[in-house]
């Protein structure tokens, strides 16, 4: 038989008794006591699975790759251009699949496009993707056309080939919002560890996108052409790690889930891999092998960042502590959130 619970006992047990030392991490904030209804969550976690962090990763990779491709195009680095364009198309395809797969009614995907709502990051994001996608796709198609033997490029194919450059430029300019908006997508919720991260999360995500795309460049492009990819990778990694540090400081108690359980492991892996990849990228020089290893570390680090932040948010929603304590503290300080004219 199930043990009968009393809300207040339960609250005490959860509030005071729980040690926050999982995985050897010490909590940064002293234990706060709080009350709850039988320890049940207040806000609901998003009904999202691995699709969404995967979507955020591939969106970032696509965006960064499009920028590398355009730069490669302008500075005559053909391999960088080709790798960038093809990678952005492949990533874009994965983002679409994950986005649709995640819906409760996938057949109604197009309902996303029946309206444009500025208050909905998902709506704005879908439109950002719709602006970016066709151009990134066209640039990649032109790249594939150009791989055909000269004699086979006729009619539409010739047109596609000619449009590659302008399309690639448009894709590069529309790419940064693709990488940045996913941070707002998470932050614009009542999920404590996502919302409280809203100041720095966009920087973490664009840094992560640059690190991943730069990493891919290091991995797939020979060193003669990989200079920009290397610099993008290192810059992205540094931005991501710095923004992440700052984010944890500004989140208060809601930073805790970033250090616990699955999320904690992912975030630690992300930090180690990103740092390793960045150092490797700096030192790799003309070594192809070092480029490949550092590139792979950066890409994996970016994946870990997205999944880590995703899981931390989900855990923060499942524990009423992260909803109640910050709000209760506001009230006890006599500073509830009220509208002031």
């Amino acid at each position: 038989m199930t043990e009968l619970k009393r809300p207040e006992q339960d609250a005490r047990r959860r509030g005071r008794g729980r040690r926050r030392k999982r995985d050897g991490e010490q909590s940064m904030v002293p234990e706060a006591e709080f009350t709850s209804y039988y320890g049940r969550p207040i806000v609901k976690p998003a009904p999202w699975e691995a699709d969404i962090p995967a979507y955020m990763f591939f969106g970032g990779l696509a965006a960064g790759s499009s920028m590398l491709a355009a730069g490669g195009d302008l500075t005559e680095r053909p391999t960088l251009r080709r790798v960038g364009r093809v990678a952005s198309l492949l990533s874009l395809t994965v983002t679409l699949v994950t986005l649709i797969h995640d819906l409760g009614r996938p057949s109604r995907f197009l309902n996303m496009l029946r309206t444009m709502k500025l208050t909905s990051p998902m709506s704005v994001g879908t439109w950002i993707l719709s602006a970016y996608g066709p151009f990134a796709g066209l640039a990649a198609v032109s790249e594939l056309v150009d791989m055909l033997p000269e004699g086979n490029r006729r009619g539409v194919l010739r047109l596609a080939s000619a449009l590659g450059k302008p399309a690639g430029m448009v894709a590069a300019v529309t790419a940064p919002p693709v990488a940045a908006y996913t941070a707002v997508l998470l932050a614009d919720t009542a999920t404590p560890s996502w919302h409280e991260a809203y100041r720095e999360l966009p920087f973490v995500f664009v840094g992560s996108a640059a690190a991943a795309a730069g990493g891919l460049g290091l991995l797939a492009v020979p060193p003669e052409e990989a200079g920009p990819a290397r610099r993008m990778a290192v810059g992205g990694a540094v931005l991501e790690m710095a923004a992440e540090q700052q984010m944890e400081r500004s989140m208060g108690i809601t930073a805790e889930p970033l250090h616990q359980g699955t999320a904690g492991r992912l975030m630690r892996a992300s930090k180690a891999l990103t740092a390793l990849g960045a150092v490797g990228a700096l030192l790799s020089g003309r070594s192809r092998l070092a480029g490949i290893v550092s590139g792979a570390a950066l890409i994996t680090g970016s994946v870990c960042t997205r999944f880590g932040i995703f899981h931390a948010g989900q855990e923060s929603a499942k524990d009423p502590r992260y909803t109640v304590v910050p709000q209760r503290e506001r009230l006890d300080r006599g500073q509830p959130i009220r509208y002031e004219d």
């Binding site: 609901k44 998003a46 009904p47 999202w48 819906l103 409760g104 009614r105 998902m122 948010g313």
Partner: peptide, 10 residues
């Protein structure tokens, strides 16, 4: 009209 994106939930 809802396509089950689930955004309203969190």
């Amino acid at each position: 009209i809802c396509n089950g994106c689930g955004y309203c939930v969190p």
